[in-house]
Computed example of a mutant assay.
Amino acid sequence: MRPLVMGVLNVTPDSFSDGGSWADPDAAVQRGRQLLAEGADIIDVGGESTRPGAEPVGIDTELARVVPTIEALVDDVAAAGARLSIDTRHAEVAREALAAGATILNDVSASLEHVAGEAGAGWVAMHMLGEPGTMQDDPHYDDVVAEVRAFLVAAEERGRDAGADEIWIDPGIGFGKTFEHNWALLGALDQLVDTGIPVAVGTSRKGFLGAVLAEADGTDQRPGPEDRLEGSITTACWAATMGAAMIRVHDVRATVAALGAVATLHGSGGT
């Protein structure tokens, strides 16, 4: 059985990978339907960029971006047997989005467990060092794997105490981590899986993949976000092999196909 595939739907003008592509409401809805057709289990709607150095947006602006999109997609998502997720770090946005039809709160701040508990929604608790605007300013850990693991285990306990029954933990690849930290966390995903808490992973199109792809090509020119498919697919398959329960991606069709092949190999015993 393959992990759940969460398809990214950024309704922002400034996301790192596809900023502006789906900012128009009609384009966002069409993109959501496309992700469903490609096999997404979850559509993750985000109205505030959390790329490194991103500036925060006002609550009203974020609400105006995400709520109409969620409302427009509810019936299509239900018909496909899929789910809607709201990607936010603001309680007011989370509440409105969940009321509009989202059933998962993808929380990059790992601080909104009470909102998820109140709404009876799923909660994805992600680790981030600092804020999006500053998180890449020389991030430091004594032991990145141990520290992230401890943070996420504590988050899951808070979530249970707040009444959230469906929880995933996400190591936050690229959120307050150097490239070396990212690779260390990916290499030790089994230590997160071994907690018994479902693990979500998002590596899709991120900068550390551009660096390793450039190295593989023997060039100093790093490919842009939309040209990092090979690295995105490889790390998604690795996460699946290590036991991740959910993979957050931009390229849904290719990822679903690759994860299906991985699941087939596991089912056949690798022979």
Rank of each mutant, 00 (worst) to 15 (best):
C237W: 05
I167V: 15
D194I: 03
L35K: 11
D161G: 15
V5H: 10
D87V: 03
E62G: 10
W183T: 12
R228A: 03
S21Y: 13
L84F: 06
A214H: 08
G133Y: 09
V11A: 12
V144D: 02
G47A: 10
D60S: 14
V67G: 01
E180F: 05
A121I: 05
R65Y: 01
T88N: 05
R248D: 02
L105K: 09
L63D: 03
L73P: 03
P171F: 00
G39I: 10
G58M: 06
F179R: 14
L229N: 12
A27P: 08
L152E: 08
I233D: 02
D14L: 13
A28W: 04
R65Q: 06
N10S: 13
I173T: 09
M126T: 14
K206F: 00
D251T: 07
L229I: 15
A200K: 02
R33Y: 10
T134C: 04
R248E: 04
V249Q: 04
L98S: 03
G7F: 03
I247E: 02
P139A: 00
R31A: 13
P25R: 00
H90W: 03
P68L: 03
A155T: 11
A78F: 10
L265C: 15
T103I: 06
A100S: 07
K177W: 00
G32H: 01
V262A: 09
F151C: 09
W22K: 05
M246K: 14
R228D: 02
D170G: 06
P68E: 02
E92V: 12
E215C: 14
I104E: 11
I197N: 08
L192K: 07
R95P: 00
R205M: 10
A82G: 11
T178Q: 00
A200P: 09
D217K: 15
E92N: 08
H140K: 14
I86G: 10
A236M: 02
I104K: 07
D107M: 07
Q221I: 13
L84Q: 05
A184Q: 12
T255M: 07
A261N: 09
D87T: 03
S111Q: 15
A150P: 05
D217Q: 15
V256F: 06
V57L: 12
M246Y: 08
E62C: 09
R160F: 07
H114S: 15
G81T: 14
Q136V: 04
E96T: 11
H250N: 08
G47F: 03
P68D: 06
S21D: 15
A40T: 06
T195H: 14
P56G: 11
D107A: 08
L4R: 14
H90F: 08
G174T: 03
D161R: 15
Y141P: 01
L63C: 00
G20M: 01
V45G: 04
A150H: 09
D194Y: 01
L105I: 03
Q221Y: 02
S17P: 05
V11C: 09
A72L: 11
E156M: 09
L84N: 08
F16I: 13
G159F: 01
L36N: 07
A82M: 10
A80C: 10
L112C: 02
Q191C: 01
A240M: 11
H181M: 00
S232F: 01
A28F: 01
A64W: 07
L105N: 06
D26T: 12
A82V: 12
A23I: 11
S111C: 15
S111V: 13
E96K: 13
A146L: 07
I59D: 13
V212Y: 05
R65W: 01
L209F: 04
L152S: 05
G159V: 04
